[in-house]
């Protein structure tokens, strides 16, 4: 799980071109949107693309997406639940 979170942080930084952010700057449980990293709804679409391209998980409903993409921790949990399912 820790490895997955670490990997996710690197992938998020790359996908969203967060140039001045390092993986250790991202708290596992901090909100990605709004205050946290200051991401917006287009970023959330890009993160869903990340899930699809790297983990082959397709999120159909944007409303569902919002829950999954709350934090790195929630993303990691979702990925794990899909992979073990």
């Amino acid at each position: 799980m820790e490895d997955l979170k670490q990997k996710l942080k690197v992938q998020i930084i790359e996908a969203l071109n967060l140039q001045d952010t390092r993986p250790e700057d991202i708290d596992d449980n901090a909100p990605l949107f709004g205050e946290g990293l200051g991401l917006d709804s287009i970023d959330s679409l890009e993160l869903m693309v990340l899930l699809e391209r790297h983990y082959h998980i397709k999120v159909e409903d944007p409303r569902e997406g919002r829950k999954i993409l709350q934090s790195v921790a929630s993303m990691a949990e979702f990925i794990q639940s899909k992979q073990t399912a």
């Binding site: 287009i42 679409l45 890009e46 693309v49 699809e52 391209r53 397709k58």
Partner: peptide, 13 residues
């Protein structure tokens, strides 16, 4: 390249 799947919307926008 992605055969119409998993497309990043940014270049379209």
């Amino acid at each position: 390249d992605y055969e119409e799947r998993a497309l990043n919307p940014t270049p379209f926008i």
